[in-house]
Design a protein around this nucleic acid. Structure first.
Length: 680
DNA sequence: GAGCACTGC
């Protein structure tokens, strides 16, 4: 797809409105303004939810299940746990409040501890990966949904808890979706076994109310008012063939008409188009007449270094307009105050999964209505705002109502393994709120079967002892398997490092502007054995210089992600020790590391063809070496790889050179079917 | 010779 239109957008820019005004659907709602000078207990009483306090307490005391609908700003997340505690509800145990994100869990716990005037970690605490700030006194516990799920593996009835609050349920993360089933089952079993009852409160924004209520035994829905500021909606008159061009026009239209203090937030799909549009905006802004004020354009996306991300919070100089070009990171994860205008391209980049091919595709697609509302809500948090939707109202009406839950578009191997570890008897018929397709479930079981994690008797799937061990690692099953195999090859220390490197965001910086320098620096670590061992070399060098930051800069290594590797590695190593594994280092015998990787990743193997192309051994589809691989120029006969990425071709990413014999010895049955006779 | 939204254990 050509990215550059024939004419640079700058020349196409014509002032004038492609929009018309629509005076309907006002009233998104917005969080309250923080005011440090107001005492904390007064702030609590000023929240909209306070009016409903006694009524809420009465209801929640009686109900086993409740669905609580309330927009941001109602105060539900900070207040409900305190109301429960103050009313003595569930005091025999702990009230757990789950969040999809770590930062949210931590900041909510901090806030509630402040409100209760206690030290964090006493009455109020939090638990996220690598951090547990709780004690025996903790009664209100904020945690990530993934963390509660992990805990459930050791305690499927969640007996430490009397109340579980599943917050931000509308986001439908895989973890929340699995938790729905886990808490529902725990609730039922505790009732059957005459144990202390478990209260389940689902908290969500406005959507999906019926689904939640239906699923939790037709539980009552309680509505909470939020604080709203009106929002003015604009739609385009005509469908836009080029949303980038439309975004550009809109930015400058607003820039010409609105006071400079009004910030603009534009929702786009990815790094590349954001950087391109940022350049174009800056170019045009330079050549505008003096009647237009200056403009500062700030890109925002997850892979941006943290220091640059912080720029979005700095106010623009007086008289200068702030324009933020963002991915959907600004939908939920990063909240920027002072946004008066939102421009919504209506597009998003999202992952899809094809269970038949096992392929994940990252594709630009239309947002859902729910997502469009979420984006709109980011306008005018403190005051009224405007939203420019770069699509027609008809197009809006035709958007799907809700984003497809993640559980219906991802590889389910880890989910199925976790369900089995939770002791769910009939995994194939697990009570999901939104069932994944049977093909996706079957494909997951098949993968686990190949890894030796499950056994099958007819329809019944059971966990093997190996599978049980695999489930104790917070990793994708194939990586857990690779670690568990590593003692056989006397290279556990190396494999732990490699798997840790693979389970954090990339540790390699690749600034396009300094490409040559970057390649030169990386050359020192490159080995013809492949990407895994190149990464291992980098980690070893990093350790040798004691994690020196200067060294990281010189070698284009992301020091923050590299420290994370250390944390992950320590956690994985701890689990190995608990499993009484013998951990050895193979030193310079890197062949044994590759052999171990071949045994763990044999399902992801590819074979060189006589014409120089590659074929994946399991599906026989054509694949290619990704140009970012150190093996890109090489033509190894056999490789294993971490993942397939479908973009312009089907690319293998992160490759390791292997022997065909190793693959056969890893899975003789499997390869008898897959391997073709080697040609000379 | 490509180019990767966002979380999380």
């Amino acid at each position: 797809m050509p990215h550059n239109p024939d004419h640079p957008p700058a020349k196409k820019f014509k002032p004038g409105s492609p929009f018309f005004r629509i005076d309907k659907k006002p009233g998104m709602l917005l969080p309250r303004k923080e005011n440090a000078s107001v005492p904390i207990d007064v702030q609590r009483k000023n929240l909209p939810i306070y009016q409903a306090k006694s009524q809420l307490i009465n209801q929640l005391r009686q109900l086993h299940n409740a669905v609580l609908i309330g927009e941001t700003g109602s105060g539900k997340t900070t207040q409900i746990p305190q109301y429960l505690y103050e009313a003595g509800i569930g005091r025999q145990g702990i009230v757990a409040v789950t969040q999809p994100r770590r930062v949210a869990a931590i900041s909510l716990a901090t806030r509630v501890a402040e409100e209760k005037r206690t030290q964090l970690g006493k009455l109020v605490g939090y638990t996220v990966r690598f951090e547990d700030v709780t004690s025996s006194e903790t009664k209100l516990k904020f945690m990530t949904d993934g963390m509660l799920l992990r805990e459930a593996i050791g305690d499927p009835l969640l007996l430490r808890y009397t109340v579980v609050v599943l917050d931000e349920a509308h986001e439908r993360t895989v973890h929340t979706d699995v938790l729905f089933g886990v808490v529902k089952a725990a609730q039922r079993k505790r009732r059957e076994q005459n144990k202390v009852p478990l209260k389940v409160i689902v908290m969500s924004a406005t959507m999906d109310v019926d689904l939640f209520s239906q699923y939790f035994n037709k539980s009552p829905v309680l509505y909470l008012e939020g604080r709203q500021h009106p929002i003015q909606m604009y739609y385009t008159k005509q469908p836009q063939s080029d949303y980038l061009q439309a975004a550009l026009v809109s930015v400058f239209q607003i820039h010409q008409e609105a006071p400079a203090s009004h910030d603009i937030l534009v929702f786009m799909t990815g790094q590349e188009e954001i950087e391109a549009l940022a350049r174009t905006c800056r170019d045009i802004a330079k050549h505008l007449p003096d009647s237009c004020g200056p403009m500062t354009v700030i890109p925002l996306y997850a892979s941006l270094p943290p220091a640059q991300q912080l720029r979005v919070f700095q106010p623009a100089p007086k008289g200068c307009r702030k324009v933020i070009l963002s991915t959907n990171i600004a939908e939920t994860s990063i909240t920027i105050s002072g946004i008066k205008y939102v421009i919504d391209t209506g597009m998003v980049k999202a992952k899809r999964f094809n269970p038949e091919s096992g392929l994940e595709v990252l594709a630009v697609q239309r947002v859902s209505k729910a997502q469009a509302w979420q984006r709109a809500g980011r306008a005018g948090r403190e005051d009224s705002g405007s939203v420019y939707r770069l699509y027609t109202e008809d197009e809006f009406d035709n958007l799907i109502p809700m984003t497809v839950p993640e559980i219906q578009r991802c590889n389910l191997a880890s989910v199925v393994l976790q369900l089995l570890a939770l002791g769910i008897p009939d995994v194939m018929n697990f009570d999901f709120m939104s069932k994944p397709s049977p093909e996706a479930m079957r494909s997951a079981v098949e993968q686990l079967d190949l890894l030796g994690a499950v056994g099958r008797k007819g329809e019944q799937v059971t966990l093997t002892p190996l599978g049980k061990k695999m489930a104790s690692f917070p990793l994708e099953p194939r990586y857990a398997k690779t670690i568990l195999l590593s003692p056989d090859f006397q290279c556990s220390e190396e494999v732990l490092t490699i798997v840790s490197l693979l389970s954090v965001d990339t540790v390699l910086y690749n600034p396009p502007a300094r490409r040559e320098e970057c390649l030169a620096a990386r050359k020192k670590f490159t080995t013809s054995e492949g990407d895994h061992l190149t990464l291992l070399n980098i980690y070893r060098a990093f350790k040798k210089v004691n994690a020196n930051k200067e060294w990281c800069r010189e070698n284009f290594v992301n020091s923050r992600n590299m420290s994370m590797v250390g944390e992950v590695r320590a956690q994985l190593r701890e689990i190995c020790l608990k499993l009484s594994m013998k951990l050895e280092s193979c030193g310079s015998d890197t062949g044994s590391v590759r052999r171990c990787l071949a045994h763990g990743l044999f399902m992801n193997a590819a074979e060189l063809q006589p014409d120089g192309s590659y074929t994946a051994l399991d599906t026989h589809q054509p694949v290619a070496i990704h140009p970012s691989s150190v093996l890109f120029q090489a033509k190894p006969a056999y490789v294993v790889f971490n993942e397939l990425l479908h973009t312009s071709k089907c690319y293998m990413r992160d490759l390791c050179l292997v022997d065909a014999d190793w693959l056969v010895e890893a899975a003789p049955e499997y390869f008898r079917r897959k391997l073709r006779p080697t040609k000379s």
